[in-house]
Amino acid sequence: MTSVTSVTLSCSPIRTASLHEEVASRLRTLIFERRLLPGQRIDELALVQEWGVSRTPVREALKVLASEGLVTLQPRRGCVVTEVSEDDAEQLFPVMALLEGRCAYEAALHASDDELAELRLLHGELERHAAAHDADGYYRANHVFHTRVQEVAHNGWLSRATDQLRGFMRMLRGRQLAQPGRFEASIAEHRELLDALCARDAERAQRLMHDHLMAQLAALKALRASEAAQSRVA
């Protein structure tokens, strides 16, 4: 009979977050808040000096972000923030609409009463920012609301798939809200969605969430067309 040998493991404490993970987290925030813009080169030396770290954790962090698709390694330029092109958006939004639609479907079925009450509170934040036409505040509250719908669906596989694409959606940072009339349309779509979720009407919630994402794409395309036309005139 084969004996099982006991292995002595190191008892040294495990850090909750390594240095390169902290650097990666800060860089994600800079990208998502558009303080690092699409196409902008990331200056490793400047980060080293500003954050008081060595180049090793910065480079390791950039590898992590590259694996997530948030930055791109370019010859002779180093790392640059990934640009989400019009073609990317055309392909991304329909896929995200399917995923988030399913999140809404399962949230309507599985969310607890307390979780639905939480969604109503989060929607109240959306209402407040929409009334003030506060694009940054609305964007942040919108991200929290959509992420929470995803979480209360209670489907780990669905959440994993959705998470992989949500970062690219965040890189667009609600630009479609600059399209005239989009603020009003977006909050109206959210009101209907919340109503369907609270009524536990899964099929309606799925359809409304899907259409909400596709309306964002339509607004983004209209905004880009308008900007292109203005550029030609100038």
Rank of each mutant, 00 (worst) to 15 (best):
G69N: 06
H133M: 11
Q206F: 08
V64R: 12
F93K: 00
A97F: 00
Y105P: 00
A66L: 06
G174P: 07
A222E: 05
G124P: 04
A199L: 14
A205F: 03
A153M: 00
S3W: 12
R166M: 15
E127H: 09
L208M: 15
M209Q: 13
E184A: 10
S54V: 00
L119T: 06
R200S: 01
T56H: 13
E151P: 02
A97P: 02
T56G: 03
V152K: 00
V71S: 05
W157L: 10
L223F: 05
L193W: 03
K63W: 06
D43N: 14
M96A: 12
F168G: 06
E68V: 00
L119Q: 06
R207Q: 14
H212G: 09
E192V: 08
E189F: 06
E50N: 14
R160H: 12
H190N: 05
M169W: 11
R170S: 11
R182C: 04
H123E: 11
L65F: 09
G167V: 11
R26G: 10
L121I: 14
Y105N: 04
S226N: 09
A46S: 10
L172G: 08
A205R: 01
W51T: 07
Q150D: 13
M1L: 15
A229I: 01
R15I: 13
Q179C: 12
R160N: 15
D201C: 03
V71A: 09
R55F: 08
M169P: 04
Q206E: 10
Q91M: 10
L65D: 06
I187A: 02
D114Y: 12
V23I: 15
E22G: 12
E86Y: 05
S54Q: 13
E203A: 15
A135F: 10
L73W: 14
L223H: 03
V84Y: 03
V80T: 05
R77P: 03
E44K: 14
L197N: 04
L177D: 00
A188Q: 12
R182G: 00
C198W: 05
L194M: 07
L36H: 02
L99R: 05
H123R: 03
E50D: 15
H212L: 08
G124E: 07
Q179N: 15
C11D: 14
V23P: 01
F32S: 04
Q74W: 14
E227C: 05
G78A: 03
R200D: 02
H212Y: 05
M169R: 13
A205S: 13
A130I: 06
W157P: 09
G101H: 02
S186Q: 11
L172C: 09
G137C: 06
G78T: 07
A107P: 00
